[in-house]
């Protein structure tokens, strides 16, 4: 048993798992996140679903980054990997800023109206 696990350092991930597997995971997460944004009413949970979608996008960025496929990426795979990772860091920073501001807004609404429900937040409706 332990001798089978000998190969554990996961050297050959890129040779054994196709790109499609990571992309499929990403797609499923994105779909679930968008579904959550549509059907949930608690704004905090809606926010969480948005985070889920952002993470799905991150995952697809990273999987494309480490599988050099397109002709541009195949010319300089290292640079394309770095480009993908930089994008992911940007997304993470944006998510952090968005959460800080968004939760601040939710707290402000809660203080102002003493209840939060996305269906009741319609004062801006024309």
């Amino acid at each position: 048993m332990l001798n089978i696990l000998h190969q554990f350092p996961l050297a050959a991930v890129h040779d054994e798992i196709p790109l499609a597997a990571f992309l499929g995971l990403s797609l499923a997460m994105f779909a679930l996140g968008s579904l959550g944004v549509l059907i949930r009413k608690n704004p905090v949970v809606v926010f969480m679903c948005i985070e889920l979608m952002l993470n799905a996008v991150n995952l697809s960025f990273l999987s494309f980054a480490s599988y050099p496929t397109a002709s541009v990426a195949a010319r300089d795979p290292f640079a394309s990997a770095m480009a993908g990772q930089s994008m992911v860091i940007c997304v993470m920073a944006i998510a952090a800023a968005e959460v800080a501001v968004g939760l601040g807004i939710i707290m402000a609404i809660f203080r102002y109206r003493n209840q939060v429900d996305v269906d009741d937040m319609n004062t801006m409706r024309g």
Partner: peptide, 11 residues
């Protein structure tokens, strides 16, 4: 997207 990338492995 996913169907075409099914046979793509790392270089």
């Amino acid at each position: 997207v996913i169907q075409p990338t099914q046979s793509i492995y790392g270089a």
